[in-house]
Design a protein around this nucleic acid. Sequence first.
DNA 1: TCCGGAAGGC
DNA 2: GCCTTCCGGA
Length: 133
Amino acid sequence: GFAFPDWAYKPESSPGSRQIQLWHFILELLQKEEYRDVIAWQGDYGEFVIKDPDEVARLWGMRKCKPHMNYDKLSRALRYYYNKRILHKTKGKRFTYKFNFSKLILVNYPVWDMAPSPLLTGANHYHPSLLQA
DNA sequence: TCCGGAAGGC
DNA sequence: GCCTTCCGGA
């Protein structure tokens, strides 16, 4: 057994809702270079900055078919991740959050080294077998 | 801006 | 369960 957080094993859709999860969507944007001006890894490992909150909200709204989505509402959803230990806020840094990656993940799993990787693009990204390594 | 309670949808 | 919507408060 390895010390990956439980949520890291979850596939695209959770068993119950079968809907895209926000944290997964965020990772999806982060791995694509075309969104570098919208959201990007920055600072410490696992830390990312939302450079264009309105655009991230718009894209999230598109995905969820919620045309009235905005950053106020999206950020409330992000705040619910605090107790779940998926995310926390980087205090003092505007629009900056940090994934609760353990160092173990980064050491044992270089593909998650905060850079866009072809391994993570495509339908099978985050497949559990990929994480077993 | 950021926080977290409350209500409610699906 | 996972948000979406709304909002008072810091």
